[in-house]
Simulated scan of single mutants.
Amino acid sequence: MAPPQMDRRLTPATDRVALEDLRGLLDRPAWTAGRPARLVRPLADLCSDPGGARDRQVNFGAPLTVIEDRGDHSFVRADRDGYCGWLDRAAIGPADPAPTHRVTAPATHVYPRPDMKTREVMSLSMGAELAGAGPEGRFLRLATGGFVPIGHVGQDPATDPVAVARSLLGTPYLWGGNSRWGIDCSGLVQAALGACGIACPGDSDLQRQAFPESPAIDRGDLLFWPGHVAMAVSPQVMIHATAWTMSVTLEPIADALARIDAAGEGPFLGAHRPG
């Protein structure tokens, strides 16, 4: 068992194997330096146990450190935010080639040829990391095979997390979701900040700890309740992924405060400013 001060979600160790970095902090039968890898499926659930409940999701090309292989599953650390959990082993591939681009559109398709009329081979969500091998017409050829529309990818970070979050309006709510196909409150915040190059943890309690308090609500601030986070679009309006509408939606902040308080799901925990 990890010591009480070590968060299971952020501890790169199973009951049998731990990363070398934790020597002296944990007692484990075996230690590893970890194996660098990447996700090779469009999307995969990161689970609390092999084949168990979903904690979060990992997108295509995400860098991983594999800590233990066990049957059909592997325990990994998602290196972008340090979140640890179990993935389907078949979803994990080699670390190379290194990504050169990220999907910047809410979603895109990978085609077998640089032709939009061909049948797509996979669909990718915002934040997927791609190794580009050069432009080909209106497409980017991928080193791993296939072509994506060049207008759906980029190499530079976005500059406005609110604009990124707004591009995901209407995305269905999904507990633990991190993609255009389904996203939750902390997943939306992480996607918006990550697209702008701002490191962001995966869960709302960790996000609240990561960023300083804001003296007054302003555009881009994160608004927190127990188990929930939203992003201020302005001092009066927020955007969030919510089970209330089962979607990413805009809502007046005053209305949200009153509704959440009436439902007994408060209290409001304040605003924090990322970046």
Rank of each mutant, 00 (worst) to 15 (best):
D115P: 08
R141D: 02
D79V: 05
M6D: 13
V17Y: 05
G275R: 07
A53T: 09
R113A: 15
L43T: 01
R38Q: 02
S247H: 05
H109G: 04
A210I: 05
C84G: 11
A143C: 11
I198N: 09
A232G: 06
V40H: 09
P157D: 00
T242H: 02
G151Y: 02
F147R: 10
V153H: 00
A262M: 00
H101F: 06
E20K: 14
H272N: 08
V237Q: 06
P201V: 08
N59M: 08
A53Y: 06
A262I: 03
G24R: 01
C185P: 03
L168T: 13
P114A: 13
E20V: 10
D81S: 15
P42F: 14
D156V: 11
C196M: 01
D72V: 11
G145I: 09
L22H: 07
S247R: 12
D160G: 04
P106V: 02
P201N: 07
R56G: 02
D49V: 15
V162Y: 03
N59H: 14
R38N: 03
W181M: 07
P112K: 01
M1L: 14
R54H: 03
P201M: 05
L39R: 10
I217Y: 02
R70N: 12
G85R: 13
I253V: 12
R259E: 06
T245S: 15
L142H: 09
Y173W: 09
R56K: 11
G220N: 07
V248A: 00
D45K: 02
P12Y: 06
P94S: 14
L39C: 11
R38A: 12
G275Y: 04
W225Y: 04
P36F: 13
